[in-house]
């Protein structure tokens, strides 16, 4: 599907009208940055080369339009990133402890926990899924946008308290992400554009 088809409005209720050009420039800038980082030195030749290659890549492999929404709020994003790093450290140690316990002790019990998200945005759901899967100790094994629900396997969650804790953790994480993206909780379409197109 080309970008025009996605942006054209059919099937999508929230086409990103304002700042469309700017928004489309974001991946280009990212690709340019990656290119410069790969070369390791900042020079105008690298920047221009990166822009050219980025443009080529985006023309050859057009990205679907990013779901609408605001720009990133730097402060909240930094806070979310800091909390993410904290989560990484804490749960790494926890999984390490459980791994060592399991050598001698009884097998570790786990849970598959369903969490309903407050936001109906698929983008928020994708971010939550990504972060939860990155953090050791929880893996999202199923995500259902139509129910706004993610199903996560949580290592060592063997009582009601742990299950409740996990739900609270997800709620906090979602709050962080929504705050970092700087948008209200539930602005977007109930059914994703892809499913809508497929069913036709």
């Amino acid at each position: 599907m080309s970008r025009e088809g996605r942006d054209g409005g059919e099937g999508r209720r929230t086409p990103p009208n304002t700042g469309g050009i700017l928004r489309r420039a974001v991946p280009l800038v990212w690709l340019m940055i990656v290119w410069v980082l790969l070369w390791g030195t900042f020079s105008w030749a690298n920047v221009l080369g990166g822009l050219a290659i980025g443009l080529l890549v985006l023309v050859l492999f057009p990205l679907p339009a990013a779901p609408g929404g605001g720009w990133i709020r730097p402060g909240a994003a930094l806070g979310a990133a800091a909390r993410f790093v904290g989560d990484l450290v804490v749960s790494s140690l926890q999984v390490a402890r459980q791994s060592l316990q399991a050598v001698t002790g009884p097998p570790i019990r786990s849970s598959v926990i369903a969490v309903r998200l407050a936001s109906s945005s698929e983008f928020v759901m994708a971010m939550v899924t990504e972060v939860l899967t990155l953090v050791p100790g929880s893996v999202v094994i199923e995500a259902r946008p139509e129910e706004r629900t993610i199903y996560a396997h949580v290592l060592g969650a063997d009582d009601d308290q742990a299950v409740a804790d996990f739900r609270a953790q997800v709620a906090r994480l979602e709050g962080d992400i929504v705050a970092a993206l700087g948008r209200p909780a539930a602005p977007t379409v109930p059914v994703g554009p892809d499913t809508a197109e497929e069913s036709r």
Binding site: L88, S99, I141, L155
Partner: peptide, 26 residues
């Protein structure tokens, strides 16, 4: 190292995956 131990000690695929996340990410 601990993750490799966990890969051996944890009881099923899903649990082992948590251990596998550690060397891959952190």
């Amino acid at each position: 190292l601990v993750a490799s131990v966990g890969l051996l000690s944890l009881p099923d695929v899903l649990s082992r995956m948590h251990a596998a996340t550690k060397p891959q990410v952190v």
